[in-house]
Simulated assay, not measured.
Amino acid sequence: MATTQLTASSISTRNVASFEGLRPIQFPCAGLVRIANPTRRSFRGLLVKAATVVAPKFTAIKPLGDRVLVKIKESEEKSQGGILLPTTAQTKPQGGEVVAVGEGKTIGKSQVEISVTTGAQVVYSKYAGTEVEFNGTKHLILKDDDIVGILETEDIKDLKPLNDRVLIKVAVAEEKTAGGLLLTEATKEKPSIGTVIAVGPGPLGEEGKRKPLAIAPGNTVLYSKYAGNDFKGKDGSDYVTLRSSDVMAILS
């Protein structure tokens, strides 16, 4: 049987890529097909492989300085009525249990201890700290000052603020305009007035001593509109925790 050999003179080699390491293709009828000196696009050195992430295994974490290690409380997967919530609708946790604390920090000549102890149930600022995972559980390492307060119940109104934090029950938004028009939820202006429920012991001074706040429970205050962290109480009321510096005035 006659065979046919194709050479560069009988076949166009334009736009033919070279893949080094591939074996020639043999055709039973045409014999061995060889292409002489094609225009080459080299793929030498290209290596593709699946990425493998090896997570280190931690058995213990010891916070340093004024840092605290908190075991994050898991998000609720169901609503109070038992409805399964999608991931996007689950409430992002802002609380957890203190599992380890640092040695504190030095202010002037005074050594100041961490304001919380191991086992305390705490609430922290929404975007505070660095999340770590070990032993299959999510934890957060954050500064002592990022802890908003201690919460021993499931109701935010029972929060005990720390440092210069203040817990405020937000005034109810107006449902009607001055002209009597009913406002929708989207057009209701977020109120920045509320009643102080609890206050922290105050910020640390240069000598490591607490300076009491000028705000007291029961005060009606005006605060910065977008300050602090918002919470929903068991009674359906809105609460906000913020620093005392975000309170602009006491109303009477």
Rank of each mutant, 00 (worst) to 15 (best):
residue 2 A to N: 09
residue 4 T to N: 08
residue 16 V to D: 03
residue 17 A to V: 13
residue 22 L to D: 05
residue 27 F to T: 12
residue 29 C to W: 09
residue 30 A to E: 12
residue 31 G to T: 01
residue 34 R to P: 00
residue 36 A to D: 15
residue 46 L to C: 09
residue 48 V to Q: 04
residue 50 A to E: 14
residue 52 T to I: 12
residue 53 V to T: 14
residue 55 A to P: 00
residue 55 A to C: 06
residue 59 T to Y: 07
residue 65 G to T: 05
residue 65 G to C: 05
residue 65 G to M: 06
residue 65 G to F: 05
residue 69 L to R: 03
residue 73 K to F: 08
residue 73 K to R: 15
residue 76 E to G: 14
residue 76 E to V: 10
residue 80 Q to W: 13
residue 82 G to H: 07
residue 82 G to A: 05
residue 83 I to Y: 09
residue 85 L to K: 11
residue 91 T to R: 12
residue 92 K to R: 06
residue 98 V to C: 01
residue 103 E to Y: 04
residue 107 I to W: 03
residue 110 S to V: 12
residue 116 V to R: 02
residue 118 T to W: 00
residue 120 A to C: 10
residue 123 V to R: 06
residue 127 Y to T: 12
residue 127 Y to H: 12
residue 129 G to A: 05
residue 131 E to R: 15
residue 131 E to V: 15
residue 133 E to G: 10
residue 136 G to Q: 04
residue 137 T to Q: 14
residue 137 T to P: 01
residue 138 K to D: 11
residue 139 H to R: 04
residue 148 V to Q: 08
residue 155 D to E: 13
residue 156 I to K: 01
residue 158 D to Q: 08
residue 161 P to C: 02
residue 165 R to Y: 15
residue 170 V to E: 11
residue 174 E to M: 08
residue 174 E to H: 11
residue 175 E to R: 11
residue 176 K to N: 07
residue 176 K to A: 07
residue 177 T to R: 07
residue 180 G to M: 06
residue 182 L to Y: 11
residue 193 I to G: 01
residue 195 T to M: 09
residue 208 G to Y: 04
residue 209 K to W: 08
residue 212 P to L: 03
residue 219 N to M: 13
residue 222 L to M: 10
residue 227 A to Q: 01
residue 229 N to A: 09
residue 236 G to K: 03
residue 236 G to R: 04
residue 237 S to Y: 01
residue 241 T to Q: 05
residue 242 L to D: 00
residue 243 R to E: 15
residue 251 L to R: 10
